[in-house]
Design a protein around this nucleic acid. Structure first.
Lengths: 224, 224
DNA sequence: GAGTACGAAATCGTATACGATAACTATGGC
DNA sequence: GCCATAGTTATCGTATACGATTTCGTACTC
């Protein structure tokens, strides 16, 4: 998974800025000054500008004319939008992948899920989150539609960016989550029909959103 | 709907190239030469490059290092991917919009649908397609989640680009389509539950895809 | 005649430079 | 002391220039 080929400086800048947004180095609201980033990366501003505009099209960055770029997603509403969208996309991606998921994949997912349970016992939310991504990656990586897969990845990136700054771990929800993971695996193993799997996967994420809403009282999607 | 503000030259280039792709001036496979486009638009290559990279992130353009950009979507498989993705996004968008659609919207949609019937009698597939977009726009424009709405628009753009070059009108499917439109409106009017509306909207597009597949024998999504 | 090597042309990729715009700061009036 | 205004600074936006890479055409060899 290591990106050996550096590619053009434009792509280098794209990858670098994206990575910094996803890992939280640049938090939501962070002001992205072109000249500064260019200097940091040892390139000129042109490729950086290009990279930022690409990230804007992916939703990770907000761009304002003659003002500059900021990392998007600082607004709790954005989180709701992202989670809702991801719930839909993920549900579909999981359902489409299901027929292509083999016993080896299931075993790997169970392994990851077991590690997640360990994280709950030793209270390691950071690792838990990382493993959670691994778990779902196993489910998604066989998705036959690359467009949908791409949308899932974008959603995860936005989520990672938001979480890196406003992370809140809800232990109760986390326990539910690993149980739902196992239920999902059993549905897939038993060749359940696509709709059932889709609904289960969708509710899995929607429940996380609900837990967040219940905790933060951040408002609801319908009241806007 | 006229874009009065020209904005920066970068955005001008973005809008111009996008429009040309969507309306078919630049068909799928068309080679986008930066210098040529820059000259056409009376700007330098830098903003054009930026615009192209943004369009790439939206999926309208394919970019290859040191080679150049081409309009994407020439492959029938791409059409399948796009339709499948759109079916999912549209279904969700329609379901989310439904509670916010008022009698005036319904009336407007019925008006458009009536015109679509006229187009079938006088065999005007081009206008039929344009009205079809209008019809669905009425259903989508109230979608409370801007991310989802954005994905719908992107899907329609890609579709328009593909259709502009490989359009095939299937009269039988078109008749079904207007009937399904009316059925959709009735579901919305009767405050049907979200799942029902979502499934109906999704099947509406999926049926169009099936009709295409049946006619062209272009293969299936599962065989890849 | 087919394949290969070389050279020319086209095109991309990025640095630099400079004008344009917005944000900030300080000064003066009330 | 507060607001308005002018000047300054920081940053963006784009044109131009030039090096790097690919592609295409041509000549040469087998």
């Amino acid at each position: 998974m290591t990106e050996t080929a550096v590619g053009s400086k434009s792509e280098q800048a794209y990858a670098a800025v994206k990575a910094r947004i996803v890992d939280g180095t640049y938090s939501p609201g962070y002001r992205l000054v072109l000249a500064k980033i260019a200097e940091d990366l040892g390139v000129s501003v042109v490729p950086v500008r290009e990279a930022i505009r690409r990230l804007e099209a992916e939703g990770l960055v907000k761009f304002e004319r003659n003002v500059g770029a900021t990392v998007s997603g600082i607004d709790p509403t954005e989180y709701l939008y992202t989670m809702q969208t991801l719930s839909i996309i993920e549900g579909a991606a999981t359902a489409l992948s299901a027929p292509l998921i083999g016993p080896a994949d299931i075993a790997r997912a169970r392994e990851v899920n077991a590690e997640m349970r360990d994280c709950l016992e030793h209270f390691d939310p950071v690792r838990f989150t990382a493993l959670n991504q691994d778990f779902h990656s196993v489910l998604f990586e066989h998705c036959p539609n690359p467009h949908i897969l791409d949308l899932v990845h974008r959603g995860w990136n936005r989520l990672a960016s938001i979480r890196a700054s406003t992370f809140r771990f809800v232990p109760g929800r986390a326990h539910e989550s690993v149980d739902e993971h196992e239920a999902l695996l059993q549905l897939i193993e038993s060749n359940a029909d696509a709709d059932t799997i889709e609904q289960a996967a969708r509710r899995h994420r929607a429940a996380t959103l609900d837990a967040y809403l219940a905790q933060s009282n951040a408002g609801s999607l319908s009241a806007h």
